[in-house]
Structure formats: structure tokens, C-alpha cells
């Protein structure tokens, strides 16, 4: 996923949650991003710093990258995604739309493209900490 789009999504989702929970200020946002997304940490952090509204003024964004483990549905072989084995344009295509991994990656044991992404796909807001309006 594109870092700027991700940053916008994180701010929008965190704002929605803060609204629901009555938080006047957000202190910490934990984000988990799958390795398949191939996020550039610096760009994401810069985008977050540019997009954050006053509610996020003192917020710390903790980013965790989840390793991508794949499992073949045909022969059940499990393996880890290795970006280093892909050429630049393939890696970039997977960065934008991780599902096209099924176009380019095959099971190293039996050659099937029918694999499951066990971990390391998607973007998740794990937790948000902040100050409740009532806390003053």
C-alpha cells in the first residue's frame, strides 16, 4: 500500500476511534503492517507527521512490521516471503496491491500459485492510547 494513502487511512481510522471513545488527545497509536506491503518506514513517518491534526499533536506512532509467511494450499509447504528475490517492478507491484503476489510468486516446492498468506498481509490499528475529555 502506498505510504501516503496508508497514513491518511491511519489518521482517519484513529480519529474515528478517538471520537467514539471520547478522547480529546491521542498519545500513542500502534500500527501493524504486513511485510508484503513493503512500507518504507521513513516515508510513512513523514506522511503521518504532515497529516496529523491537533488531536495528534503529541502522538507517537509505533509501527510494527509483521513477517510474511506463506502456505501452499496444494502441498502445504510453508515459506517466508523474500523481497530480495523479486525484481524491482514486481516488488513495486506487490507493494501497491499485495494480492498480485499470486501473479508472481509460486510455491517453491510444487510451483502452485494457490497459496495462503498466513501472516504479513494487511494493515491494522492495534491500539490507541489517549486522554479522555473528562480527564481534563
Amino acid at each position: 500500500m502506498h505510504e501516503w494513502a496508508l497514513a491518511e487511512a491511519v489518521i482517519a481510522a484513529a480519529s474515528e476511534i478517538a471520537e467514539k471513545e471520547g478522547l480529546s488527545e491521542i498519545k500513542e497509536v500502534k500500527i501493524k503492517v504486513g511485510e508484503l506491503q513493503q512500507i518504507e518506514r521513513d516515508i510513512l513517518e513523514f506522511a503521518l507527521s504532515q497529516l496529523k491534526s491537533t488531536k495528534f499533536k503529541n502522538a507517537k506512532f509505533n509501527l510494527e512490521i509483521a513477517k510474511a509467511e506463506l502456505k501452499c494450499r496444494v502441498c502445504e509447504h510453508k515459506w517466508f516471503f523474500g523481497k530480495e528475490k523479486l525484481d524491482e517492478s514486481t516488488a513495486e507491484a506487490i507493494h501497491f496491491v499485495p494480492e498480485v503476489a499470486h501473479t508472481y510468486i509460486k510455491c517453491p516446492k510444487c510451483g502452485s500459485p494457490d497459496f495462503e498468506i498466513l501472516t504479513g498481509r494487511g494493515v491494522w490499528l492495534e491500539s490507541i492510547k489517549g486522554v479522555k475529555q473528562d480527564d481534563g
Partner: peptide, 27 residues
Amino acid sequence: IIYYSGEYATPLRGADVSNALIELLSI
């Protein structure tokens, strides 16, 4: 999706279709 998959086959199961759709809608 062809900008990213080219002219190759993209075999996707249901959950993958949902994920790719959400990804493209959000970027």
C-alpha cells in the same frame, strides 16, 4: 489491476479479491 499484474494470470480466492478491492479503493 493490470497496471500491477500485467498480462499474467492472477488467481485470487474470495478473501484476496476483497483485499485487493479495498486496497485499490483506498489508494
